[in-house]
Amino acid sequence: MTTITILIVGVLFSTSVYLILQRNIIPILFGFSLLNHAANIFLLAVSGDPTGKKAPIVTLLGESYVDPLPQALLLTAIVIGFGVTAYLIVLLYRIYLSHSSTNIEDIYND
C-alpha cells in the first residue's frame, strides 16, 4: 500500500513540475493544482500503512487505528489549497483579460 502511495506521489510531483514549466498559463494552473495534491498525498502517506486498521474513532475495544494527526493536518492543508487555487484562477484570468493571451511569452513581452 505504501509503495503505491509513493508511486502516486512521484507521478504527481513529476507531472506537476512538467506542467508548471509549460509556456501557457492553463497548464501552469493545473500544474500548481496537482502540486498541491502531491504534497497532500505525501502527508497522507506519513500516517503509515493503513491495511487492517480502523478509522480513528476510539471505542475502548483496543482496536488499532490509523494515526489521525496527519489527516487533521491534511484537512487544513486542503482548505488552504482551495483558497490559494481560487486566488490563482482569478489572477490568471485577470492576466488573460489585460493581455488577451494565455501565452507566457506574449504576456511578459507585451
Binding site: N36, A38, A39, F42, L43, A77, I80, L88
Partner: peptide, 13 residues
C-alpha cells in the same frame, strides 16, 4: 506556492 508545497512535505518528514 512551490515553497508551501515543500513546507508541507518537510512537515510530513
Amino acid at each position: 506556492l512551490i515553497g508551501s508545497a515543500l513546507f508541507l512535505c518537510a512537515g510530513g518528514i
